[in-house]
Each structure stands twice: as structure tokens, then as C-alpha cells.
Design a protein around this nucleic acid. Sequence first.
DNA 1: CATTGTTTGAATCATCCGTTTGACATGGCG
DNA 2: CGCCATGTCAAACGGATGATTCAAACAATG
Lengths: 235, 235
Amino acid sequence: MGLPMREIKFPQSDAKRRLLEAAEQLFADKGFEVVSVRDITKAAEANVASVNYHFGSREGLIAAVVTRYMLPVNEERLARVEVLEKRWAGKTAPLEEIIEAFARPLVGMVRKSELSERLFCRLLGRIFTMPKDGLPLVVEEQMKVLSDRLGRLLAKALPTVAPEELAWRMHFVAGAMIHALLNQDVLHRLTNGASGAPSMEAVVSRFIRFAAAGLREGVELAVVEPKGPQATFDF
Amino acid sequence: MGLPMREIKFPQSDAKRRLLEAAEQLFADKGFEVVSVRDITKAAEANVASVNYHFGSREGLIAAVVTRYMLPVNEERLARVEVLEKRWAGKTAPLEEIIEAFARPLVGMVRKSELSERLFCRLLGRIFTMPKDGLPLVVEEQMKVLSDRLGRLLAKALPTVAPEELAWRMHFVAGAMIHALLNQDVLHRLTNGASGAPSMEAVVSRFIRFAAAGLREGVELAVVEPKGPQATFDF
DNA sequence: CATTGTTTGAATCATCCGTTTGACATGGCG
DNA sequence: CGCCATGTCAAACGGATGATTCAAACAATG
């Protein structure tokens, strides 16, 4: 067993791809802090030095992992927001559609990865819980833009909710989403039981209704309050 | 400078207390994974070996930090739950009071610690995001009991919400709470502005209203569904 | 074929980690 | 006084970490 088969060398470094995928898997599963370069190179069947060669450093690899999916996800979110803004120009968009524009792209991007849905969501959750200065600059700026647009949309859709109140509600919503992304497994057994389950897609619908309800709490009896500072977000 | 003042030795080890407090502060600020024993002993002005002497190991110190506040917090929560169950025996308790019983004790315990409100909440958030097998046994069992009681109370208060749906909504609520505990700082500037601010107490009220609204989403039009599995919680 | 730029591999670096050890100081008690 | 329990301390342990080095292997190009 184990004939010395000819080692096939791929051009333009197949190892780099292997490293990225092994890193994604391990980071998603165990978290960025606790996975070592050696864990990754072992899983990718690559040399210890390869990470530093291909990505400059451990940090560089993390940045690559983060960017790979967050960039397209955020672009998709931005696209949806712009559709929303155009279609409801002047009028206020329905709360559910606003939230959907931010939440749906997250799980919609699963297909583009080699990871299972569970691990992909976990990776996203891990990214959202990163210290904000740990994000690559491009992603960080994307997030700022998105955060701003979301704040504006929600403020327009909920004119009777005071800005500070809205900021906190957005904070709660973000937490609900991140927690669901990170810990879906603990509930999937209970939810799916034995069924095949489209799983995360269904959860998004639940989440949207939950978030919308929380956001517009007590809105029908309220009085319009004066404008305050703009709310920010980590969503 | 630096007269060789008589070193005052405290009986029954004052160092142990210093270690605990330094550990709390560092763990709350930076997270359990990234703070080393040496970081702690340096902050506590103690020897590297002192952690292992007083707590057996790094894990032992973490367990001590976790237990110190989680035990009384959970006892307070349990007490509130029992008051609730007695006062509303037969009838269904109002959603807001149920949530309050679980949320209020968290921030109410700040006074018993040397930590700032911000750091104390952060420590709690960190504990809730721990892998569940990282918790001391006593605390883990407390949590199980509480989770069960909460699930029962909510299921009774929301008979029209399907069990799986309720489980997810509880999950969302937990996420909102944990995220708010961990990242209050990013919003406090915006919320407090320049005022003195009782801060976290006010946030709890916001949170309770948000959570209640999310939990009873669409409840008035719903039809009672058949009973399913009992919901669990990480709250 | 020879040259060039790219990619691997094993060995090594300095540093940090949690823990252990043994020497040493202290204070109470018979 | 000796004796022992309780803490403290510097030093060292083995191991793991991220990063670097340099020679060898490789593909592509002229």
C-alpha cells in the first residue's frame, strides 16, 4: 500500500487554495484565536512556511478568509439596498424588506463556498464578533457604508422611534442575528428533527419577523420625537 | 526614592484576592482565550506560580472567576422566577415580567464587584459566549434548570407560538442580550452623550420591551398548534 | 538546454505558554 | 527553642507558537 505515486504538482499553487479552505474550516469551527498556523498547514497537507509565503503572515491569511466572502456578501447587500431605495423612493420601505436586504445575502452566499451551511454561517458569525480593528480595511469601509444606509432606512421607516432607542434596537437585532449564525447547531436538532430541512433559509424568515416586531415595538401609539444623532450598526 | 519600606505580609493571602480581581478585569476586557497567566500575575503584582498555587491551574482560575458572580446571579434569577410562578399560579405571567426576571439580576449584581459597570457586563457576556463545556459544573446545572423554567413560563405565556418557533425566538433574545452585554460601549457614547447616566439599568428596560415584542410577534391572529418538544436556552 | 522566477521543504529562530520545582521567608504553637 | 503549615519567589521545564532562512525542486521562457 502507498505506492510512491508520482506527486502531481499543480501550477499556480494549488496549495494556496488548500490553505484557504483548511483555514476557513478550522476558523469557522474553533475560532480565529485558537487555531494555529500549524493546525492549518497540517490540515492542508502543506508546509509550515507556506502560510507566510502565500499570505505574508497569519494575519494575512485571516484577512484573506474574511475578505473572500464578506466582500461579495456586502456587495449583494448593497445592491439590495439600492433596489429598495429606488423602488420605495419617497415612500418608506416595509421593515421586513429592509431587514431581509441585510440578512438574506448572508446565508445566500453559502453555495459559493466549499463549507457546509453550518460552518459557513459559523464563519460569518465569527467575523461579526471580531474586534472591529481586526477587519481588513476594505471590509470595514463597506460595513460603515452599509451601517449608515441601514440606519437611514430604518429611521425613515420608524419616524416615531427616538434615535437612541432605534440605535439600541438595531444593536439587539444584530446580536440576535450573530448569535443565531454562531449557534444554530444547538437548535437544529430540535427544529429539524428528522426532516431533510432547508434549515438556514427558514431561520432567516423567522429572524426577519422577530427583528421587525422588536424594531417597531409600541410604534402605533407613539408621538414623533425630535431628530437626534444617526444610529450606527455592526450588522 | 524607593525606600525599602517594610513589606507588609497579609495573612490568609491577599494575593489570591488580587489575582482574582486582576483576572476578572483582564478576562472581561480581552477575553478568556487571549489573556495569559503571566498577564494576570503581572497585573496583580504576584508571582507566576501563584495562580497554580491558589487555583490549581489556569482553568481553575477561570472557573473561580466564572463562579464568583454567576452563582449569585443565577440564584437571584431563580428566586425571581419562583416569585413569578407563585404570584401567577394558574394564570400566565406577563411576558415582560418573565424576561425581567432573567435579565435584571445580571446588571443588578454589578455593585458586588470591584469592576466598572462596563467591564462587569462584558465579563457576563464573555461567560455566556463560552463553550458550554467550559463552564463549572455547578453553574452549568443552574443554567439547565433556569433554561427549563424559562422555556416553560414562555410556552405558557405564548400558547399560540409553535415550540420550534418559540425556541428560535428565545435564541434570538439570548443573542440580543449577550451582544448588548458585550458591546455596550459602542453605543453608550451615543446614548449618554454628556449625561451622568444610570446606563445599563436603562438598557435593560429597552431590552425587555424589545424582547417581549419579538417574542409575541403575530400572536393575536394565531391558532393554537399541537405541543412539541420543550425549548432550551442559553440565557 | 540554460536561465529565470516561483513554489516547496526541513531546519531553525526567538518568544511565549502553563506548569513544576526547590529554596526561602514568615508566623503560630507546643 | 524547634517544628510545621502557609505563602512567596526565582528559576527552569517541555512544548507550542509565528516567523525566517536557505537549499532544492519545479514550470515557464528564451
